[in-house]
């Protein structure tokens, strides 16, 4: 799950050699892949580390709202699909953390930044999952939005990031489909199930549009990331693509997207949509979403409760190594 939320990165103290920067940008322009040991501008390294770790954190925090329904999934097939999906998110977080580590920051430090509240993650996960329909809606909207983003990121200029995205896109195909299948089933179900589905759509639609981040004009990072080939497209273009794809899907299962301004524009061949509530967006980014505190608390609890396990494993391995050395 992608985030495009700005957080200022300070320019590095020593400016990079302009000739090397020019050479680097020429490589990107030629479509070459940047690899861990290649020279790169410090700011490219920092921006990528920030963006990739935010992405990884989003996968990990994203396990919580959906994990909330694993124990209540309404049948065995759904239960298994949901466990597998939440597990995939752990895997995706893991792949992206590993990719981020190749930039020189280890996972311990990245995780600590999240736990200390210094790193951001996608704000969508600060919304609560209130009914079973939310699980369908997250798969449909949130994973749908993520796929739009990640398909683009699979062509990112940084090799380890792009390769992680290729693997993730391949695995994530099932996420959106399982979500949409849940919604289609509910929409065709009892009146209560239908109402549950529509209510979830009403609550998740706008936050899903916010996932793509602020308008490009107001996004401090967007332009630079596009120039460096980390992002290939701007936030607004991706958001529009998501809206265009989703409208027909909603119509097909008779659910209504909660936007009276939604209208097809013959000229642009896009679906025009109403204004996004950016006050809400910034409020949630800054910590006052419905579940910001719960999400961080859950991560901190798991980390703290797991410390003795991590330490014990390392201690056991060290003992084994010592006795192997002594035996040799």
């Amino acid at each position: 799950m992608m985030v495009n939320e700005p957080s200022a990165v300070q320019p590095s103290a020593t400016p990079d050699d302009p000739a090397r920067v020019a050479e680097f940008e020429a490589r990107i322009a030629r479509g070459e892949s940047i690899e861990p040991k290649d020279w790169m501008p410090e700011r490219y390294r920092k921006q990528l580390t920030r963006m990739m770790s935010q992405h990884a954190h989003s996968e990990i925090v994203g396990m919580l709202p959906e994990g909330n329904w694993i124990t209540r999934a309404p049948n065995l097939r759904r239960k298994m699909a949901l466990i597998a999906k939440v597990q995939d998110e752990a895997g995706h977080g893991l792949y992206i953390y590993c990719g981020t580590e190749t930039l020189g920051t280890d996972r311990q430090e990245l995780v600590q930044q999240l736990l200390d509240g210094k790193a951001k993650y996608s704000s969508i996960f600060n919304y609560p999952t209130l009914t079973w329909a939310d699980i369908g809606c997250i798969g449909w909207f949130v994973d749908g939005a993520a796929i739009v983003n990640q398909t683009m990121l699979a062509k990112a200029s940084y090799g380890p990031y792009a390769r992680a995205m290729v693997r993730i896109c391949k695995e994530e195909n099932f996420h959106k489909r399982q979500g949409y299948e849940i919604m289609a089933t509910l929409a065709n179900g009892t009146p209560e199930q239908r109402a549950m589905a529509q209510d979830a759509v009403n609550r998740w639609w706008w936050p899903s549009l916010m996932m793509f981040g602020p308008h490009d004009a107001e996004s401090s990072n967007s332009e630079e990331l596009v120039r460096w080939g980390v992002k290939k497209k701007g936030n607004d273009e991706l958001r529009q693509r998501f809206v265009n794809l989703t409208v027909a899907q909603a119509t097909a299962i008779n659910l209504t997207l909660p936007d009276p301004a939604l209208q097809y524009n013959e000229q642009t061949e896009n679906w025009d949509f109403g204004p996004i509530d950016w006050d809400e967006f910034w409020r949630v980014v800054k910590g006052d979403g419905p579940c910001n505190r719960e999400r961080l608390a859950a991560r901190r609890d798991a980390h703290a409760a797991g410390e003795w396990v991590r330490v014990a494993a390392a201690a056991y391995a060290a003992k084994q190594q010592r006795s192997a050395t002594e035996a040799a």
């Binding site: 311990q108 992680a164 693997r167 991590r310 330490v311 494993a313």
Partner: peptide, 29 residues
């Protein structure tokens, strides 16, 4: 005797696909 808390050392993972191709780098754990 306890080491400090960490996320453990990093390993590179290579998978051999079912059709007999060579092992290929998949990622790390």
């Amino acid at each position: 005797t306890s080491p400090a808390d960490s996320q453990w050392p990093l390993w590179e993972v290579f998978l051999q696909p079912p059709k007999g191709e060579a092992h290929e780098h998949a990622g790390s754990v």
